[in-house]
Design a protein around this nucleic acid. Structure first.
Lengths: 353, 353
DNA sequence: CTTGGCACTCGGGAGCAAGGAGTGCCAGTC
DNA sequence: GACTGGCACTCCTTGCTCCCGAGTGCCAAG
């Protein structure tokens, strides 16, 4: 259906259009690529490509522009991911290895990716649900107040304040709870802390609720209100934070491209966590870069943008996704190379810290 | 120099131009405001205002537009801050009181302010240097690794990983350090934790370094490497985090305004922490809303934007600044009202948690 | 199947005229 | 002396036509 030369023509059209941002005509094609045939022949090929929906012309008497379908074919069959230069790799490595906590890793990653691709970068925080408990800490901060700190193996630290009722109030408090004036004694807290850590150490966050159902039965009646309060906040933390955090950088790069009128839509999408999540898409084949082109995106306002994304994680464990958002008219091979490289390095950094 | 009527004319010009975004002429003025005089009189007044530099005309035969100087006079003498409606106040209160940690407070605040003003909101995280230590926690997370958690009275939580050399290595290690196989025993950590907390509790962060200079002398020789490692990381944390974090939201609102060509400059500024810091400006009179108009801004790319900012804090203590960035053609009274209100509520929320 | 030639189609830019908004100025009035 | 109506003037904006050029589609010939 499409012989080799027609594919070569399509590839040439995509490459030329990406670099010049102008509809490309048959003459320009034969000039810039030595295809060995005359413009007239190219015209015939282009007519076929247009009929099949791979290219289109903005108006009669203008050159051709790839359609989403054309870009798709280009990405799938006509191009290979372009690896980064040695200098770029080294820059990534040194830049990322200077980070000292998770916020910093994510922040540096997103800025790096934006600068590397000259587009908008998006990075999702490592998922809570896929990581496991490394440590739980309880810290008294004031009268009747505790701070719960949850540390995961991915370096994420969650903190929440717990209000502990003075004593006797609440639902299931036994009569003996009133015998002691203060249930927040150092011993009670220490006991509970030890208990939590032995119960939960190394456990996946998804398994925490089941592991803790009978926690109140494992403590003395005195400590029961405290345990109940801690338990409820802990579970709440796991649920609340399930909605994952996501950040972006490089919005200024959008202004460089000519985004017709939809720039506003893109900015709106960037500020809506939910939309961004959907854009990055589901976790796919690990270590595979995925591309969503134009109308393949779930969002209506982003009809003319593409998303290049990949999973990242440590070892076999996928933690989250990161990617790049730009115009459909994008240098896919380079962008895919940058995304893949950054995803790998982030995994390494997270594994090392 | 400028009689009352001329001031009224200037006020009317600013108000009309803000709402219509079109140069305003003498006819339109007499139609929309009953100034009690004819267009011809207004024209004379406008000629004077223009001569003095308060207004200008884009081209002959167009209406007048306020200059930065004109806006300045308007803000300083011709307008009063417009308080929010009851419904708006209530919305702020309920929206902010749902927050559960500092990140969430700041995140909600910036989104709220952006939505309220329909512009770009900027919020600086509460300054570390101005807050005080509420608690220090040490948590062993792995062989030879500790997590240091620093909790401040403003709800900020800083965490850093500490690598503790196994034993004997490092500079000042005495020979006796080798007698014990593991300096990270529970007792050592507990001891150091207690020591840190008694030394630092309630101390301003700026005073931490001096309070800790002789920490190594207060512990047993065994614990000295540990203490030194913790100390150095703690001090480093205070220094590093001095460069304060700042976030923005509402970039999509920029697309609504017609920002000539400088949209890119604005986006660049928003992504540069340093520039944003400078824009918000120095802490001024507490509880006073400050306005920077157009060229009064330090940044060249923001010649046509204004910044409305205010301090926020708990009680008399100023913690940081927040504000709004928009075109010079902005509804100053309403924006100032929103900024002031949000700053107050954030203070209350921070005081309560 | 490829090629050169040729007529055709549009979009974009230049040039021009009409329309309109707004000003500045002047002489007259209260 | 301050305000007002009138009037000429400026210059932006809009709509229009015309022309040019890039690029195509088709056809007949190699």
């Amino acid at each position: 259906m499409l012989d080799d030369r027609k594919l070569a023509v399509l590839r040439a059209i995509v490459e030329d259009f990406v670099s010049t941002n102008e509809p490309v005509g048959s003459k320009a094609l034969t000039d810039r690529h030595n295809l060995g045939v005359s413009p007239a022949t190219i015209r015939n090929d282009m007519a076929v490509l247009e009929e099949q929906g791979y290219i289109t012309q903005p108006h009669t008497s203008a050159g051709r522009v790839p359609t989403d379908k054309g870009y798709r074919l280009f990405v799938d069959r006509l191009s290979t991911i372009k690896p980064l230069s040695v200098a770029e790799r080294r820059a990534i490595e040194t830049f990322l290895s200077g980070a000292y906590d998770l916020d910093d890793v994510v922040g540096r990653t997103v800025r790096l990716l934006a600068q590397l691709t000259r587009q908008v970068a998006v990075v999702q925080y490592p998922s809570l649900t896929r990581s496991s408990v490394r440590h739980v800490e309880l810290v008294p901060v004031a009268e009747g107040r505790l701070l719960l700190v949850l540390i995961t193996n991915t370096g994420r630290v969650e903190q929440r304040v717990i209000d502990v009722p003075p004593h006797g109030s609440g639902g299931s408090g036994g009569p003996s709870a009133q015998s002691k004036p203060d249930a927040l004694s150092e011993e009670s807290i220490g006991h509970l802390r030890a208990l939590l850590n032995t119960c939960l150490d190394g456990l996946g966050l998804g398994d925490v609720p089941t592991a803790l159902v009978d926690l109140p039965n494992k403590v003395t009646p005195d400590e029961r209100p405290l345990a109940a309060a801690v338990l409820s906040v802990l579970l709440e933390t796991l649920v609340d934070k399930h909605e994952e955090k996501i950040v972006f950088a490089g919005a200024a790069n959008l202004a460089a491209v000519d985004f017709s009128q939809s720039l506003r839509d893109v900015l709106v999408a960037l500020e809506e966590q939910v939309i961004l999540m959907r854009l990055l898409g589901e976790t796919g084949d690990s270590s595979k870069v995925t591309v969503r082109i134009g109308t393949e995106n779930p969002d209506l306002g982003l009809r003319s943008t593409s998303v290049v994304a990949a999973d990242y994680g440590v070892g076999d464990l996928t933690l989250a996704r990161l990617g790049v958002l730009g115009p459909t008219r994008m240098d896919y091979p380079s962008t895919m190379g940058a995304v893949r490289a950054v995803a790998r390095y982030v995994g390494q950094i997270l594994a090392g810290s």
